[in-house]
Design a protein around this nucleic acid. Structure first.
Length: 288
DNA sequence: GTCCAGGAGCCAT
DNA sequence: ATGGCTCATGGA
């Protein structure tokens, strides 16, 4: 019996917030649900109060790729309970209850965030879309659904010219992406090793790649590498930390990093995503 | 037109 | 170590 869809019971999962919170860039609202690509599969997700319904284009028995991506086995209340119980965090939790962290593909996540520096999220989405549409593989979709493409793999990106990459609109980030892809393709960095390493060690390895500094390394390790204490500090988080924890003072980056390292507990990365999303919601910068 | 975006690299102190 | 400048592109 061919299975084109399946319902996953899950509590406290705000799919819309999760898919628009700046951790993944390929999801589009479609009617009452969301369409996207995970690996080489097209999928449509529809959220209901106590479950998420998934529709795919090809018959599927093994759904572990989806349960892993959405982290459906995680009990959110267990994570939230580890946050410091202070007004700032309680407020962020109240503002976006149900927000989750995804478990993404390492290469897609790394490449996307190399393209993210000093770009708005809507622009990152555009560049990633063009990269996939021009250099990814076409994907099987149900009748009536528009064409979709996979995210081009490391080898594919490694053999693209800087000109081809710049034509996607990535500007000065083109050589960063190209050189990083070539280093990974040459075996100088192993994604599976990054998962096993300590967080500081994994950072050092990732930051050897051109265009990857502390912030992007932490994004990859948190959103794809399963490092729960990785805590990307970008301009939004820095501004939020200043306002919420330093009385609005001009805190240098190193001081902010020292603070987050000791303050947010074993799921600091999750806490970061709540602070980030709450801040963006307040400024009205969401697509949804 | 101007400002700024989920930064990083480089150079001058 | 730290602060300032530059990088390319397009949305607000």
């Amino acid at each position: 019996m061919a299975n084109y869809e399946r319902v996953f019971p899950v509590a406290e999962y705000d799919l819309a917030a999760t898919l628009t919170s700046g951790q993944a860039f390929r999801w589009n609202r479609s009617g009452d649900g969301w369409e996207g690509v995970i690996g080489c599969r097209w999928v449509r997700l529809v959220a209901r109060p106590d479950n998420i319904r998934a529709i795919v284009a090809e018959p599927t028995k093994d759904w572990s790729w989806l349960t892993s991506y959405l982290q459906l086995d995680l009990v959110l209340s267990d994570v939230l309970a580890t946050f410091p119980s202070e007004p700032q965090m309680l407020r962020a939790i109240a503002a976006c209850r149900g927000l989750r962290l995804l478990r993404q593909d390492m290469w897609e996540c790394l490449a996307s965030f190399i393209l993210s520096s000093t770009k708005q999220i809507v622009q990152i989405r555009q560049v990633v879309d063009r990269l996939c549409g021009r250099f990814g593989e076409p994907i099987i979709v149900p009748p009536g659904v528009s064409l979709h493409w996979s995210f081009p793999d490391v080898l594919q990106v490694a053999r693209l010219s800087e000109r081809e990459l710049r034509a996607c609109g990535m500007g000065f980030r083109a050589p960063y992406l190209r050189e990083s892809a070539k280093l990974i393709a040459a075996g100088e960095l192993s994604f599976t090793e990054l998962v096993k390493m300590s967080l500081p060690q994994a950072r050092v390895e990732l930051m050897k790649l051109p265009g990857v500094g502390r912030k992007i390394a932490d994004c990859v390790l948190l959103f794809a590498g399963g490092h729960a204490t990785a805590f990307p500090v970008d301009v939004w988080i820095l501004k939020t930390l200043r306002e919420l924890y330093f009385g609005g003072a001009e805190v240098p980056m190193r001081q902010a990093l020292a603070f987050v390292e000791s303050h947010f507990g074993p799921h600091a990365g999750y806490a970061q995503q709540y602070l980030f999303h709450a801040a963006r919601m307040e400024s009205g910068r969401l697509l949804c």
